[in-house]
Nucleic acid binder design. Sequence first.
DNA 1: ACTTTACTTTGGAAAGC
DNA 2: GCTTTAAAAAGTAAAGT
Lengths: 207, 183
Amino acid sequence: RLRKWQRRIRVSNATERNLAFALSELDRMASALGLPRTVRETAAVVYRKAVDKNLIRGRSIEGVAAAALYAACRQCSVPRTLDEIEEVSRVSRKEIGRTYRFISRELALKLMPTSPIDYVPRFCSGLNLKGEVQSKSVEILRQASEKELTSGRGPTGVAAAAIYIASILCGERRTQREVADVAGVTEVTIRNRYKELAEELDIEIIL
Amino acid sequence: MSESSIKIENVVASTKLAEEFDLTLIESQFEGAEYNKQKFPGLVYRVSDPKAAFLVFTSGKVVCTGAKNVADVHTVIGNMAKKLNSIGIKTIENPQITVQNIVASADLHTILNLNAIAIGLGLENIEYEPEQFPGLVYRIDEPKVVVLIFSSGKLVVTGGKSPEDCERGVEVVRQQLDNMGLL
DNA sequence: ACTTTACTTTGGAAAGC
DNA sequence: GCTTTAAAAAGTAAAGT
């Protein structure tokens, strides 16, 4: 009986220790990414659900924590790319993506693919662009979506192109390099996307 | 009726041509053969009549990939057996050839809204992460194949054991999209 | 800017780490 | 899980001209 009692304490300690480690990892990564408390709490909820369903078996705590944070950002509509999560975690992008798919399926998170619109506020503030430009960007993205110009394209690239166009239309032009840097895509991608958007949405860009 | 106009792009098959092989010997006799035991346990050998690539193992088992037809698979494996015989290696007479996987492409000839398809097919049944890959991944149970759906309307079907599996897979997708009014 | 090469995803077998 | 093979889809990326 005593053995069983001690074992329970040991298991309990290990479980609590692992949970504490996971939560500290979530906090560390969230801080590094400057994420608000709500996102950290959401990530903690996702992680705890994963623990309750024994989804950690065969997976690293760091990996599940990173995947939980990635999922939480999307649930809260403040998405971070897998590359950004990878930068603050100790796990590879491949592992994070793999773990994300797993917990997303097992916990039935049913998340829609990231919308380019959700990247607009963050990218615009990173470029010191006002609300007017943000609104214009969102308007462009809604039109782009209606005209089927976003399926299969990277959300960050499409968002970057819309912001690039909006900044010009609003008289607060940002260069492709500046937009590319905050969006984490190349100038070539911005160029390809903005040309397609300008042409299909009949937007005149005067440089 | 439903000639999906599937184009087979690659056929993967396996078979056993002998009880064992001396891969070092084959490497020295076959022009272009690559064999690095520490890198990979199989010997790599490419042929070009019907184009294909072989992975030959010491167990006598062989994997054939890259063929464009199921018939070509039998042809190139037959040629491979003859080449082995020509350097003094005996092979099993009528090797049992198993097609393990077929990759095919198709086209629905319509621009598709992948977000709508994701919802229509059910988020729990698909995988669509445009940040990582432009195609929507749809796994079908019957036939057991995986279909990659692109916004261009082009498809890639893989996992099938026969050309019929691939064609049926395309039909299942076509019909489901049609029923949802997404075609 | 344009071209070329290359990596992302899917599936399966092989022998071994 | 990884390693190696082949091939398509479309997007993105990097390197060389």
